[in-house]
Amino acid sequence: MLEARLEQANLFKKVVDAIKDLVQDCNFDCNDSGIALQAMDNSHVALVSMMLRSESFAPFRCDRNIALGINLTSLTKVLKCAQSDDILTLKAEDAPDVVELVFESAESDRISEYSIKLMDIDQEHLGIPETDYGATISMPAAEFQRICRDLIALSESVSIECSKEGVKFACQGDIGSGAVTLRQHTNVDKPEMNVEINMSEPVSLTFSLKYLVNFCKASGLSNQVRLCLSNEVPLLVEYSLANNSHLRFYLAPKIGD
């Protein structure tokens, strides 16, 4: 059986909120290492990969591998019933028909119990190769969100160019063009504002802003976001969570014709 207690229901709410517009029906794969999810959007352009390690829960118990096939619209409806400071416990039997969600108020004696009917989802698990990226950029998540939201007003795609000058986000649209360049930057007082650029080779790739704006819904999960780029390879956008957990998005680059 599965029993996973999360001190902050809000964390799970934010994760589901960040991915629900990209993917609809997902398997939450539970085993003794934690709860993982991997799902591709319908157009096969973006992939979501989430790992909530068992250390993120207290307690965490999962005796066997259990795949919880859940519709994220249904999950969102139930998670709306949790207050943000509630404690969330996920429960399921070994061959479950339903997943149970229990919300406990830390301050009052209220206990709310919900269940969601599970679905059979036939999902192929894709191997994500270890990649030595040509450029890795860590920057404030809010800054990345702002750049994507600003540029989408002008164009549907953005080029991300990383060189020794820094990283340049540039777009061209019908009304004109826009570009934002960031250089490496260390803020001693506010390390969450740091911009760190590690580059082994110059990289230039073009991506759909619609997807990037969508990934940025995860900005509330982490102060910093990490962008990993190599020419001709999907972009990795990573939000690190506590206890070595993470939410990662992969996006196929646009290719010129």
Binding site: M40, H44, V233, Y250, A252
Partner: peptide
């Protein structure tokens, strides 16, 4: 317009 590669092929092949 530029097209986008199918991630399915990328991850399956690699």
């Amino acid at each position: 317009a530029p097209f986008q590669r199918d991630l399915y092929n990328y991850f399956i092949q690699s």
